[in-house]
Design a protein around this nucleic acid. Structure first.
Lengths: 379, 379
DNA sequence: AATCGCGTGGCAACTGGTTGCCATGTGTTG
DNA sequence: CAACACATGGCAACCAGTTGCCACGCGATT
């Protein structure tokens, strides 16, 4: 609170040597007083702490890092910060990191594997661990990185690297069942980026579920996972839209709805649309977007928790760079539960504009049950 | 590309000493070869570079920072990453920082001055400069910080500290003129957080413009600057909504529209609403939100550019912590132009539900001119 | 009384670069 | 041919901590 200290006008320049001299001890003792509590006599430690306070001493994290090889920073690499999906993940990560005394180094890779590599190159030597969210690099590249520093991957499963992913399969299943209960029999999947692991996962899951529920499925894409991409998808779809669509993510779904609207196709009367992720905006648009809610915040938090565990595991000696044993199951991905949020973008299949085969309208009680809307992101 | 180097299996552990030995020179020469091009004979430098490459050597930024007191990192402090407003700013900052070889340390302060201080405390010793976006600290606290490290403030003017702000006054003027041209005579301002400098600025500007244009203005608030806040504002407004509203930011405006809709008040038929910032979602909702577009990305970029200039200015000797002379005008805020984006949330004042005084409907040609919509954020 | 062990504190080496200053060698100039 | 300037490389100190090892002193054990 004081603006001027007695002797140290420049709080950034006080070193352990200054403190040591003033306290009448050796610099090493000062160092120990801070970094190794218990190693120093309580009385001495107290005195040192008082002098340090008085001088306005702060440990220099860089100097400390130089010998301990621990910086207290972790890198968070995301493809696009502006994507609200990652914004939530970042928040979750940041919260738990901060709580543990760690700082986050953020890198946006603009959806480019090249930039991602470059960013890692820069960040690697400075951080204790790395969080790769939605990486666009190859599995083998990721594995290489994880050999040098602790790594946790989000939204993607990579063999031999700890991962945290939402339950894509169950999410897609929920969406498909919901649509089936509304009477839809043909679902189109609007695909996201080819490089995305989640995209492949979701499409595969959809095909499996389709078999089981006797649904027909088609697929268009790939599209860039933003609103623009959705608009383009609508164009491509224009000729023969199926009565139900599941999009790779919410942005695509939103763009799709806009694009369809522009072509005179109404949602949900003519086409039902389901998204994925439940981003902030899903609740803002009209109609509200039915979507699979991924636990974004939790994902970031969980991944960070694991990473921190790995880091403190490595704490042993500064040898064996990648020798951390994974916290629990090695290489086993942690799967986080998802839930379907039903809003206005899905509805009973209309009889017209469908093949006259099964014109019966079924009112499914379970669909009605599931129709609990949620409140918008408030935080 | 190679997975195994000839002699250095652990690329993270090669030092200048290893390179020096292998190249037959002194460590200092290796250091110079990298950090001081020209100081070393071209041929020698080339040889060193080759050996380094071969050994997989990378400079250790921490060690370098220890003696140079330059880390190549800048802190970016924002109140809420999930706020799309800041997401864009971050992107702008990150782009120019990366281009200059700098890395960004991100800190979210959850709209808390206390957390903000703590974050700065942690980050300060590690970074070369600080970007404060939407700080919740006091002016004097900010000034203190800027005495220790180069600081640039965004979206707020602080005396004696370089700032980058959008042209709030002109933005509000544009909005008010637009509403006036549509026949509105009474505008309500929905206020954001009290601690926000921008909020005070916008309200003051509105009052000034109102005088000039012979408009009446009222004000409600403060509200938290999110959708929830807008909903609450709608509740508070319910009894006597004016025909026109300007909200502190887009989230408030969006919440307001939802809240009004829930109470049976239609936008824009009954009430015209204008937001501020032109975030991503402004174009997604129905009706589209008329809003003042702030140059978010540019703001981040500009601020970063200035900060980097200040940092390289400080580069002289490691003395005088805060002695950087501001790039151009000292303490003068850089004001960035804004523009009004007219969408569906504003319309001609309806004759009913207004005082019968001036029932004449005016069709303003300039309002029609201004009605150019923009495409949503694509990037 | 001699020995053992433990709690403390100091010495000095180490982390991986940077840089001021000096020595050497070479080319240029008077 | 001497004097001088300049290019180039090395030495060693320095940045601000951490830590292995040792020494000292004191109380407990036998």
């Amino acid at each position: 609170m004081l603006e001027h200290q007695e002797e140290a006008p420049v709080p950034g320049k006080v070193t352990i040597y200054d403190v040591a001299r003033r306290a009448g001890v050796a610099p090493s003792t000062v160092s120990r007083a801070f970094s190794r509590p218990g190693r120093v006599n309580a009385a001495t430690a107290e005195r040192i702490r008082r002098v340090a306070e008085e001088l306005g001493y702060r440990v220099n994290p860089l100097a400390r890092a130089l010998s301990t090889a621990r910086t207290g920073m972790i890198a968070l690499v995301v493809p696009d910060i502006a994507n609200p999906f990652y914004a939530e993940v970042i928040l979750g990560a940041q919260a738990t990191a901060t709580r543990a005394g760690f700082t986050i180094l953020l890198a946006d890779t603009q959806e480019s594997g090249r930039i991602e590599r470059a960013a890692l190159e820069r960040a690697m030597p400075t951080v204790d661990g790395i969080l790769l969210a939605g990486s666009r690099m190859s599995d083998s590249a990721i594995r290489m990185v994880s050999k040098q520093k602790p790594v946790v991957v989000l939204n993607r499963a990579v063999v031999d690297v700890p991962c945290v992913v939402p339950d894509n399969a169950r999410g897609i299943r929920g969406a498909a069942e919901h649509l089936a209960e509304l009477g839809h029999q043909h679902i189109t999947y609007v695909a996201g980026p080819e490089a995305s692991w989640a995209d492949g996962m979701r499409w595969r899951s959809l095909r499996e579920v389709a078999l089981e529920l006797h649904l027909r499925v088609g697929r268009i894409g790939p599209f860039t996972p933003d609103v623009q991409g959705g608009v383009r998808a609508a164009e491509e779809m224009g000729t023969s839209p199926t009565s139900a669509v599941i999009a790779y993510n919410d942005q695509l779904a939103i763009g799709l709805i806009r694009g369809l609207a522009a072509r005179g196709v109404r949602v949900p009367q003519d086409v039902s649309v389901v998204g994925f992720d439940n981003i902030f905006a899903a609740d803002l648009i009209t109609p509200g977007l039915t979507t699979v809610a991924a636990p974004l915040h939790t994902e970031g938090a969980t991944a960070t928790k694991h990473l921190l565990a790995m880091i403190s595991g490595t704490a042993s000696r500064r040898s064996e760079p990648g020798a951390q044993r994974v916290p629990e199951q090695a290489g086993q991905a942690v799967v986080l539960p998802v839930r379907l949020v039903v809003r206005g973008s899905t509805a009973q299949r209309s009889r017209k504009r469908t093949s006259p085969a099964s014109g019966t309208t079924r009112v499914s009680p379970s669909a009605a049950k599931a129709a609990t809307s949620t409140s918008a992101g408030s935080r």
